[in-house]
Design a protein around this nucleic acid. Sequence first.
RNA 1: UCUUCCUUAGCUCAGUUGGUUAGAGCAUCUGACUGUUAAUCAGAGGGUCGUAGGUUCAAGUCCUACAGGGAGAGCCA
Length: 480
Amino acid sequence: MKSEKRIKVKDLMNSTAFGSDVTVKGWVRTFRNNQFIAINDGSTLSNIQAVVDFTTADETLLKRLTTGAAVSVMGTLVESQGKGQKVEIKVKKLEILGDSDAEKFPLQPKKHSLEFLRDIAHLRFRTNTFNAVFKVRHALAFAIHQFFNDRGFVYLHTPIITASDAEGAGEMFRVTSLDFNNPPRLENGEVDFKQDFFGKSTNLTVSGQLEAELAAMAFGEVYTFGPTFRAENSNTTRHLAEFWMIEPEVAFNDLTDNMQLAEDLLKYVIKHAIDTCAEELEFLKTRLLEEEKTKPQDERSELDLMAKLNFCLENDFERLTYTEAIEILKHSAPNKKKKFKYLIDQWGADLQSEHERFLVEKHFKKPVILTDYPKGIKAFYMRQNDDGTTVRAMDILFPGIGEIIGGSQREERLERLEKRMEEMNIPAEELYWYLDTRKFGTAPHAGFGLGFERLVLFVTGMTNIRDVIPFPRAPKTAEF
RNA sequence: UCUUCCUUAGCUCAGUUGGUUAGAGCAUCUGACUGUUAAUCAGAGGGUCGUAGGUUCAAGUCCUACAGGGAGAGCCA
């Protein structure tokens, strides 16, 4: 068959060019009744129905129309006689581009568990659920760039390999070209990293924030959007060893500006997903409803996916300080009845997941921004309040996800910063370049980190973070 | 890393107080039907019950260890 120009299924579904010949290429989802091929080409969740005349068609060719096979069909676009679809293709020419052995191909035209699909992540793109999830993921990524671009931010590529292990944002993955079995050693037995590729010990980045701050001190507003690596042994539905993070950093912003930027960003990208992924979100909404049917009544969410997203757009996020949150928690029913595993008794304790969930899902029932945490439980670079005990930190908590954003106004005063680094045993010499921003033209500034996969989790209504990134990297998991 | 649950056919699962040759639906194969919508109907094949030990006359079922997976926790985004 000579190569006719292929038309995407998405463009065909609403076409009224009946009688014209069209070519469609895609993958067989099902072949029914020896004559109806459901073809999906990924452009839409919908399949186009191609009808073959089995009385004249080559029987051996029809036998090869198995689930998963790649096909090219040329035929006349007609109004469907059947009820399930408006248009279909009356096939004139059928070509199998790639066979798919029905005995071995693991996907069937039926529901599969997410756990099973995770094991065949190289094939799961071919399912409706993952088609929808990754379309939404794309839309969100695109919207993030558009949001910042429209506001004059510079997209900054911060390094993936870094020599600074000073930030303390978690365990790091070492990067080396030394012979792992026989590394050069110093006289005291330690590995001699002077002989390593970079002449020093290097790791994969855990954050681009410190570098972003440097650029913010020149461009005013910058953001990063790249992969981040944490070697934590975290086995949860919301942690990955390799994930994508968005980190805006804005000069002259204070914490209030920072909160507003974060809220605006989240609302903008969710709106964009609603506007551009109507079909996908509708599918995911239904999927979630089906999934929740298997749960007991009291564990089901009150709002469906679309209602939840719209609710998020229409309401201001609840803003309160850590201290106010502690007061609410202290007097909450679960605390008094000792239902919390960790009871809130005094100021200064770190909030546990159960407390965050209570505030977001039970008390306020909407996204919550917590600010002004005790300095003891937060990073060295956060701006210290005059009370001497709290810092200008903010965490944005989402229902079902927990912390989706963590950020702060940064400590721009050199002396305060150096003192805090000393208290927290952060080696100042290694971070001389960071401290230089405070020596030369320091200015108030603020920023935050948005966990991209957590955002995708929220918008798609999926519940395991490993199902919203194509090839998840997690402890004991690096397949594909 | 901790707690807890799970592992039976390609997939999803059932399997009684331990008791003959371990079942179902879907998928696959064969045939029928031919405007179907996860097509339908008839028939067939397919399992050393996660692995290794142990208890017992007898283990899919009870015990132990290990492996893999899920959920929750910690760490965080």
